[in-house]
Amino acid sequence: MSKILIVAEHAEGKLNGGVAKTVAAAKGVGGEIHVAVFAADAAAVAEQAAKLDGVTKVLAVNNAANANPVAAVLAPQIVEVASGGYTHVFVPGTTFGKDLAPRIAAKLDVQQVSDVMAVHGPNSFDRPIYAGNAITTVETPAGTVVATVRLASFQAVGAGGSASVETVSVGAAVPTHTRYVKLEAQKSERPDLQSAARVVSGGRALGSSENFKVIFDFADKIGAGVGASRAAVDSGYVPNDMQVGQTGKIIAPELYFAVGISGAIQHLAGIKDARTIVAINKDPEAPIFEVADIGLVGDLFQVVPELTGKV
């Protein structure tokens, strides 16, 4: 039977929401699911992890060296824990997990599976390649399965469980060649288009640079990044670094508003990984409605300010 170790991502005593989604992926494998928390003081995070549905045990590893998550420091400790009979090591597919997982896999002398988006069994997974333009099914060879989990593909498990928490001492020597200096939140009034969780984009229907204000106002109200269709960029309404689409940016926000954008295939290629697409367009025939999760036919100059007032 599978025995899965999930490495908890956390910051400032809070468990990262990605862990609950990683547990969901692990449940697809089946078997025992343990979450390991590496921290200076793991107690608070371990308690949160213990509540996740499906988790059978939480391992708390306290070490002053774990005060900040540094892959080179965590990897030897994880390898030591994983050697205790674990068949799988799963890590959230965040920058934390992507940095860490290959370091674990190499130490265990196994290939790693990146961005698991579906689980077919203990050794069979789907993962995207070519920026999501193709999906492959892969089988892992013998040995521990080390994988990062694509969070957008899984629904978080509930928090109604009560797993036992066990404090574990780990003897692995940790290196000192990598030292954490600081973390700064990105200084930007508006979130970066590429990494924003919410994005509002405007198309040529905006009609002018000045009219883009309704887009910016709405975006600022909901803390969203701002993008534009190629047509709007080509019309000179906004600078080209705002273009979303084939030759511009490919983005994957949780929530995407396409305002006055007809939905040319180039644009759709740029937003295919968006979790939820909302389309606002006065043309009920616009192709964007074919892919939108929520569509509203109407005049954007009326609808968008109205929305800004209501959210």
Partner: peptide, 12 residues
């Protein structure tokens, strides 16, 4: 090293 085996590739 032993590699992952790709059994199928499909469009999204």
């Amino acid at each position: 090293a032993a590699g992952l085996k790709t059994t199928k590739t499909v469009p999204p």
